[in-house]
């Protein structure tokens, strides 16, 4: 079987949906952050697929995915720092414990 663009796209879609679903239903903070990263992967696969398979495209897709990896890392760092600050008070990683507001 030949692997076409659509196979890659469906993997991207699948990853994205897994990430989206995970970030909504998972109760553990770390797992939520992981889910967001999975979403990022799905999006990036999409971009790279389009950039690689379509001839008329330039490097825009690669560039966006690189930027998104970078910014996603920064986002994760900020999130982990905030989580660390919150963890000091609550000593729990269940997202439902952070409910003081």
């Amino acid at each position: 079987m030949e692997i076409t663009m659509y196979h890659y796209l469906s993997i991207g879609l699948l990853l994205f949906l897994i990430g989206l679903l995970g970030s909504v239903i998972v109760k553990n903070v770390i797992k939520v952050l992981i889910s967001i990263e999975i979403m990022l992967l799905g999006v990036n696969i999409n971009f790279i697929t389009f950039a690689a398979f379509c001839d008329n495209m330039k490097f825009d897709g690669y560039v966006i995915s690189l930027f998104y990896v970078g910014l996603g890392a920064v986002e994760l760092a900020v999130a982990l720092y905030l989580f660390y600050l919150m963890y000091q008070k609550k000593e729990s990683d269940c997202i439902e414990r952070f409910n003081e507001l």
């Binding site: 991207g12 994205f16 990430g19 989206l20 970030s23 909504v24 939520v32 967001i36 979403m39 990022l40 799905g42 999006v43 999409n46 971009f47 389009f50 495209m57 825009d60 897709g61 966006i64 998104y68 986002e75 900020v78 999130a79 905030l82 989580f83 919150m86 952070f98 507001l101």
Partner: peptide, 22 residues
């Protein structure tokens, strides 16, 4: 933290839309 989680997810959704448009 809550704002961050929401906007991280929404960024993902935004870029997914952009990828298809691309």
């Amino acid at each position: 933290f809550k704002y961050l989680l929401t906007s991280a997810v929404s960024t993902g959704v935004f870029l997914f839309g952009v990828s298809y448009l691309y």
